[in-house]
């Protein structure tokens, strides 16, 4: 294949991958960017949802995307539970933020060990009609090949992230969440309970894990430790997009998707994890507020 053809193919795949990344990181963007709860267990919880999808698909034959939709309310409730615990032990006592980080790290580790005990370390896949085939087309003398699985993930991820973005920017609850981010005290003076808003927003962030997990197992085969490899990705995206900016997260997801796809095409897929890390370090060093962020970073 010619260079331009290869490059264009990589960019198209990167855009699709970017949609998938957006689905992975939008929940974290809410939890970390808007609520300041640094949920480093986020990718591992997504893997947990992916295993639930696997079970629903394998045992009951449910379509993975439908399974993701079924899981979303389950993860919403899980989010309510986790936030209640987090609030009880850390925010209420205004403990050091870093202790909360250790809490989420412990959560990550426990979830991973439990998954290893339940599923072993084999790679798992789901079956659906759109998995395994590619859509091929010729355009301007160049051949494009798009796997349907990426396309399906892209469509669902776009619907979810755009829907969430519109909801958070237009609805009363969304604006209340932004208000909590800016000044929780002022919000409570307006007669809104900031803890309640935070609890629901955090649960909303975790609810995205349900669908994101389904997309993950559609896009790649999963095993319990795979979540770790996405920690760099999701945090690079949220930080690059700017804390507190959901639309910034979406833009950053596409930038990272394209960058990773181009690097995998030209240097080999084993170098892909280095891309997100380089972007993360670069942003932290030169523009810690990210592309669209406004918060303070000190």
């Amino acid at each position: 294949m010619e260079f331009t053809e290869l490059l264009l193919n990589a960019i198209v795949a990167g855009i699709l991958l970017g949609g998938f990344f957006a689905a992975l990181s939008i929940g974290l963007s809410i939890c970390f960017g808007l609520l300041d709860t640094v949920n480093i267990a986020h990718p591992t919880i997504i893997v947990g949802a992916a295993f639930c999808t696997f079970l629903l698909n394998d045992l009951l034959g449910i379509d993975p995307i439908l399974a993701g939709l079924i899981l979303t309310p389950v993860f919403f409730i899980l989010g309510l539970a986790i936030y209640s615990m987090y609030y009880q032990f850390f925010e209420k006592q205004s403990a050091e933020a870093l202790r909360g980080l250790a809490f989420f790290f412990g959560l990550l580790f426990i979830a991973e060990v439990l998954m290893i005990m339940a599923f072993g370390v084999d790679h798992r896949l789901v079956s659906a009609p759109y998995i395994g085939n590619s859509f091929t087309t010729a355009l301007a003398g160049m051949e494009f090949s798009i796997p349907y699985r990426l396309l399906a993930a892209f469509v669902v991820a776009s619907a979810m992230t755009v829907g969430l973005q519109v909801y958070l920017s237009k609805s009363f609850f969304g604006r209340a969440t932004s208000a909590v981010h800016q000044d929780g005290m002022a919000l409570s003076l307006m007669g809104v309970d900031p803890v309640m808003v935070k609890r629901i927003a955090f649960a909303l962030g975790l609810a995205t894990c349900g669908l994101a997990g389904a997309l993950m197992i559609i896009v790649i085969p999963i095993e319990p430790a795979v979540g770790r490899f996405f920690i760099g990705n999701v945090f690079a995206i949220v930080v690059l997009g700017g804390l507190g900016s959901i639309s910034g997260t979406l833009v950053a997801a596409f930038i990272l998707g394209i960058a990773e796809s181009v690097v995998s095409t030209f240097f080999g897929p084993s170098w892909a994890p280095a891309v997100s890390f380089a972007i993360l370090l670069g942003v932290l060093a030169f523009k810690p507020t990210g592309l669209f962020g406004s918060g303070d970073t000190r």
Partner: peptide, 22 residues
């Protein structure tokens, strides 16, 4: 990362181990 909030250092170190392994 140390000029920023502590969480950034924590996140960067978490990603560091994975990149070095790569």
């Amino acid at each position: 990362t140390l000029r920023l909030k502590g969480v950034y250092f924590a996140i960067a170190t978490l990603a560091l181990a994975i990149v070095l392994e790569t």
